Computed example of a mutant assay.
Amino acid sequence: MSLEQMDKQKRKKVLIINDPLQYGGSDLVAVRLQQHLDPDKFECVYCLRHDEIGPMESQVAQSGVRILHQPDTACSYIKSYFFYKRLLKKEPFDIVHCHLLFYSGIALFAAKRCGVEKRVAHAHFSQPMRKIRNPVIRFVKSLYHVVMRGFVSFVSTDIIGCSQAAGEYLAGRRGFRRKGTVLNNGIVTKQYYLNETVRQNVRASLGLNHKIVLGHCGQLHDVKNQMFLLDVFHSFHRRYENSALILVGDGQDRQQLERRIEQLQLSKCAHILGFRNDVPQLLMAMDCFVFPSIHEGFPLTLVEAQAAQLPCVVSDTITPTVKLTEALQFASIEAQPEEWVKKIETALRIDRHTISRDRVVEDFDIARVCKKLEQIYLRK
């Protein structure tokens, strides 16, 4: 047996189950964790739900990581169970790490039946993505959540939450207390250190010289409350005509948001940039980060914004533990846009260079976060 074959035998084989890899959010968390695991200890393979090719997939594949797809025709709960069971029988894995919230229960049940020793469910959200108005559907959905919390807790060996609330949303309070670990959303902190040359170059490339730039990163989805953000910017722009808004991200609400930008006559100063792979540089170009989400788990984008020494104004529905610097302020999503404008004005008076990144580096640097994940993978 060659040395290379012996090394492969020593490594733990990890199956990462996820949706198509988009830039940002939980997909970016999953990819960063995989990329910073010790390659001498772990060999990773992705299994992505659906046939869709996400924008990050080619980047991951180029790094030499193997990617499998669960076809659209095999994505019902019953078909999913048999799909994962066939996969795990054909190719043994030591660890299955699933990022699909309650759907994780199906994949991890198959893993349990196939004798996989380490089965990890990873929670990235603390509430449902959409509010359900129909009381019957809401009751059925609530019942489903109760059943699946117990099921996920039963089939998992470990439950990871990006926050305590996210872990309890996935596995229930008792389940998370028994099997849970809070694992911070890690970033490569050195990439976000404020660089004035980069800042000025990005602003020039976007035509934002001499502008007050408000920014936002996130999937274009109603839970992110970007319609309200446009109302806030509309009020702000009436006071400061030399202002601009950049929205980094894409999603199902894009056309609706573009129509709203036209209605508010903001087309020359509010820009949707789509998915980008230069988020650290874009954060440097901003003057204030505005994040009015209706709810979140522990948003990665707020870790990134604070790592870039960017003053932030965020909704008070987000966990208070997201405050990593003194330059983050909370505002009520029940408040009028003018109240948010006042908070933004306060934020703009802060000198970014005085904002300390110490806590971000200490608690959220990806190298430290991955060491903790490796301990979870290896513990009995």
Score class of each variant (00 low, 15 high):
225 N>V: 03
225 N>M: 03
225 N>G: 05
229 L>C: 07
229 L>Q: 03
233 F>H: 08
235 S>M: 08
235 S>A: 15
236 F>L: 12
236 F>Q: 10
237 H>Q: 11
238 R>G: 06
239 R>S: 11
240 Y>V: 05
240 Y>W: 11
240 Y>K: 10
241 E>D: 04
242 N>K: 06
246 I>M: 08
247 L>H: 08
248 V>A: 03
248 V>C: 15
248 V>S: 00
249 G>Q: 11
251 G>Y: 01
252 Q>H: 03
252 Q>E: 13
254 R>N: 10
254 R>E: 05
256 Q>W: 06
257 L>T: 08
257 L>P: 11
257 L>S: 10
260 R>C: 06
260 R>H: 13
265 Q>K: 14
267 S>K: 02
269 C>F: 01
269 C>M: 01
270 A>L: 04
271 H>I: 06
274 G>V: 03
274 G>P: 09
275 F>L: 00
275 F>T: 01
275 F>G: 01
275 F>K: 01
277 N>M: 03
278 D>S: 00
278 D>P: 04
278 D>V: 00
278 D>K: 00
280 P>M: 02
282 L>M: 07
283 L>C: 06
283 L>E: 08
285 A>Y: 07
285 A>S: 09
290 V>W: 06
291 F>G: 11
291 F>H: 15
292 P>Y: 10
293 S>N: 03
293 S>L: 09
293 S>E: 12
295 H>M: 12
296 E>S: 12
